[in-house]
Each structure stands twice: as structure tokens, then as C-alpha cells.
Nucleic acid binder design. Structure first.
Lengths: 146, 146
DNA sequence: GAAAGTTGACAGTGACTACTATGAACTTTA
DNA sequence: TAAAGTTCATAGTAGTCACTGTCAACTTTC
């Protein structure tokens, strides 16, 4: 499982990761604010990035700059990942879940208080990780829809 | 069913529809080329638009101009509509279906020769019609994914 | 203790998007 | 037969996006 893969161990500081991806540190933080990536955070609030994060960032950059999909568009695509079908929360849980009921932001951008997902770490959640490129979302849908 | 609704009867010429939506005739044709809308076509190739089409166009305009999602982004969102789960084609059909195997264009933009969908009219297909706004796609996913 | 990290704010820019306009040559509608 | 439709092409433009840079004030790392 990629979730437990050692390639997801936080290794790089923000400046190192930025260099690896080829963008500025400023842009790294922007992607984070926009909800596109969740870096690991130490207690001191310092960000750390894994090999998988770097890959995700490279993918984001490609989608934004080459495939010409804007950040808002990416957010909407991520918002279509059917988290409820992946983590299999109950119908009751869904009713009071904001993420289930909107389509503008991915679930990990939404407050997790009083939620089935309370306490879960989105960074290592299968939902968050089911995006690595555009096709990967569709592949997840193929898994879930007969 | 909205498919059979009289509101989907082709009534308006392109110039009338353009006026109703508030865009130029040129833009109407652009949306069509981009795969965002499928107008009814008479034998003479003249386009006609229904009330439903006008609504779809208004929605597109809103998504593009207010919600700031680019046309390419919209195309990718539409490409995530799980057509296979809606029309319920067989696994065999899916294997040789280009639409099933890419994630860059909605199925109705793809050649329908030698296909489960050969001969079908995308314009009145539930897949095409399951988009009227961003949320409607997610709602379709909610229907299909337990 | 210097380097690099943190947050927050403001400014600037090149490139691109979405849209409009126009012209030409031809067909259909009314 | 005039108006409005069709296709195709070229040109132009206002506005936005994605990104960078910089400054400030403060904390953490090495």
C-alpha cells in the first residue's frame, strides 16, 4: 500500500522540495493554501515533504502549466473524489458531513470536527492519495462503479 | 424524465439563443467545438436550441466567468462522469471503448463507431444531461456509489 | 549566531484565456 | 430576395492567472 510506503516518509525541507520540483518556496505555500497538497508538519510547524509529495507537486505543475487546468479547476476535480465510497462512512455520517454535501472543495480542505473523519490524518488518507494525476481519479471511479 | 421533457424541444435559432444567454453567436459555436454543448441539428445543419440548452449555456457561462473554471477544466470534470455506470455497458464494451479509457474528454466528444453507443444520440443521453452544474456531477456519483 | 524556517502583506509581470469583431464564400429560411 | 444561417480564418483586447520578488517580524535548526 502506497500509504505505508517508505517513499512517503517526510524528508525534504520546503526549500529542498521546491528546488526538486522547480518552483519557488512561495509557490509551494500557495499550493498548500489552495488545498492541493498537505505537507507533513513537525511540532515546530516546519513543513517536510516526502518523495511522494514531490511527485504530487510535479504532477500538479504539469496539470497547471502544460494541461492548462487552473487551480480552481483542479480543486473541483479533487472535490469529485467519492470519499464516502472509499472510507465507507455510514449514511448518518454523510448527512452531517460538509464534505459530502458540497462540490467545491476536496474533503481534506474541510473542517473535520464532529465528523466521521475526526482525528484522521488526511495526509495519509486513501482519499487524498487517490490523486496523482487526472486519470487516477477516474481510475478510482472505475474501481467503485460497476 | 428530463430527457423527454418538452423543455428539451429545439426551439431557438443560434442568434436567439445567444441573445437569451447574453453571449455572441461566435461564442455559442466555440462552446460547441469545445464539447460543452450539443445543439440539435436539422438536416440543413442549422442549429436549434431548447430551453434546457439555454439553461446549460447559462450554467456554463456562470462556471466559466464567475466560478473561474476554465474550459479545459470543465472538460475534465465532464470527463469524470461515469458513463459506463449510467448506460451500463458490458466489460467487453468498456475494453474497446475509447471514452472509458481516457480522462481528458467527455464521452460525447469521442467517435462512436464500433461502440456500444453507436447510433445513440448523445444529446438526449442521460450521461450528457447529467451535467447542469458542478454539483450535479457529484450527485450522479452519489447515486452510483454506495 | 547565522541560515533557514514560519506567517502575512503588497507589488509586479509575462502569458494566456475567453470573448468579440470582421470578412469571405456559400446555403437555407421566411 | 433579403435576412439569417453555415464554415473557416485572422486579428485584437480586457482581464485574469500563476508565479516571483521583497519586506517585515519572529522562531527554529544546525
Amino acid at each position: 500500500m502506497s500509504t505505508l510506503d517508505k517513499s512517503n516518509t517526510p524528508l525534504y525541507t520546503i526549500s529542498m522540495a521546491a528546488k526538486l520540483v522547480g518552483i519557488s518556496v512561495h509557490t509551494m505555500r500557495m499550493y498548500e493554501n489552495e488545498g492541493l497538497i498537505i505537507p507533513f508538519k513537525k511540532e515546530s510547524k516546519q513543513r517536510l515533504y516526502s518523495e511522494l509529495d514531490v511527485e504530487r507537486l510535479r504532477c500538479l505543475r504539469k496539470v497547471i502549466n502544460e494541461e492548462r487546468i487552473g487551480i480552481e479547476g483542479i480543486r473541483r476535480l479533487l472535490a469529485l473524489i467519492p470519499c464516502w465510497g472509499i472510507i465507507k462512512c455510514s449514511l448518518k455520517d454523510r448527512k452531517k458531513c460538509e464534505a459530502y454535501n458540497i462540490a467545491t472543495k476536496p474533503c481534506w480542505m474541510i473542517n473535520h470536527k464532529n465528523n466521521y473523519c475526526t482525528g484522521r490524518d488526511c495526509r495519509v488518507c486513501e482519499v487524498y492519495q487517490s490523486f496523482s494525476n487526472c486519470e487516477s481519479i477516474k481510475n478510482k471511479l472505475k474501481e467503485l462503479i460497476a
